[in-house]
Amino acid sequence: MKAKVAIVVAVLLLAGCSTKASRMGECLNEGNDRDTCSQIEGQRQAAILGASMGAAFNNANAAANTPSTSSSSNHKHHHQKQQYQQNDDNDSNETDNDQW
Score class of each variant (00 low, 15 high):
Asn32Leu: 03
Asn59Ile: 11
Asn93Val: 01
Val11Leu: 12
Asn74Phe: 10
Asn61Val: 08
Asn74Gly: 15
Gln86Lys: 12
Cys17Lys: 01
Gln45Tyr: 09
Ser38Trp: 02
Thr19Phe: 06
Gln82Asn: 11
Asn29Gly: 13
Val11Cys: 01
Ser71Phe: 08
Asn97His: 09
Ser38Glu: 14
Cys37Ser: 04
Ala10Thr: 14
Tyr84Ala: 09
Ala46Lys: 11
Tyr84His: 11
Val11Lys: 05
Ile40Asn: 02
Ala46Ser: 09
Ala63Ser: 12
Ser38Met: 07
Ala10Glu: 06
Leu14Arg: 01
Asp91Tyr: 10
His79Trp: 10
Ser18Gly: 04
Asn29Lys: 11
Phe57Trp: 10
Asn61Glu: 13
Gln85His: 13
Gln82Leu: 05
Val8Phe: 04
Cys37Arg: 01
Ala62Phe: 06
Lys20Leu: 02
Glu94Val: 14
Asp88Leu: 07
Ile40Cys: 00
Asn93Glu: 04
Ala21Leu: 05
Asn65Val: 00
Thr66Gln: 13
Asp98His: 12
Leu49Pro: 00
Asp35Tyr: 06
Cys37His: 02
Gln99Arg: 15
Leu28Cys: 05
Lys20Asp: 00
His79Cys: 06
Leu49Phe: 09
Gln39Ala: 14
Ala62Leu: 02
Gln83Glu: 15
His79Val: 09
Ala47Arg: 10
Asn58Ser: 14
Asn65Asp: 10
Ser73Lys: 15
Phe57Ala: 13
Ser38Tyr: 05
Thr19Ile: 03
Glu41Lys: 03
Gln83Gly: 00
Glu30Phe: 02
Val8Leu: 06
Glu26Met: 06
Arg23Gly: 01
Arg34Asn: 03
Thr66Ala: 15
Thr19Gln: 04
Gln83Asp: 13
Asp33Lys: 04
Ser71Thr: 15
Asn58Arg: 04
Asn58Val: 04
Glu41His: 09
His77Leu: 03
Leu49Gln: 08
Ala21Lys: 15
Val8Glu: 11
His77Glu: 11
Ala21Tyr: 06
His78Pro: 00
Gln86Met: 04
Asn61Met: 06
Ala47Gln: 07
Gly25Thr: 05
Gly42Val: 01
